[in-house]
Amino acid sequence: MKKTIIVETEKCLGCKTCELVCAVQHSNTKNLELAVFEQPTPVPRRKVEYINSVIISDGCHHCEEALCVSACMSAAMYKDVDGTTQHNEEKCVGCNMCIMVCPFGVIKRKGNVVVKCDLCKGRENGPACVESCPTKALKVSMQLQQIS
């Protein structure tokens, strides 16, 4: 089973609500008004991107063959038992090897470590971006994994 977030481009308006709620969800205070003063500044793990008239909100795809996991020399990036790709900031040394290989460019720097979408692990209502997307362009998907 593979768990990830799917984006429907026809519904995405590029309103960046996902970016905002993601940054707040992953801040220390989890409160927008306070989070803006945190150092280092909270970083969204999703990014609204454009080409011509197409808009997408992109984040970690939790790849089956996760290149970031293979590239990570400190074993901070790993495959969790649920198939998601997770990152242990305690182990991260900020070498940027994961950034070097991520085909979607969705791993970000925050201070001395990298951060990425963790699918809001442990959050009762699932990923904050999916919950807050005004047009329901984002949804959590569970797919049967290819047998490799």
Binding site: K2, T4, K47, E49, Y50, I51, V54, I56, D58, H61, C63, E64, E65, P103, F104, G105, V106, Q143, Q146
Partner: peptide
């Protein structure tokens, strides 16, 4: 530059961008 900028290439070369992601 970001991933969206290469979307036309991804869509035109599905045989090369075959990963489910």
């Amino acid at each position: 530059f970001d991933f969206a900028k290469i979307l036309p290439l991804v869509n035109a070369n599905k045989e090369k961008f075959f990963e489910p992601e």
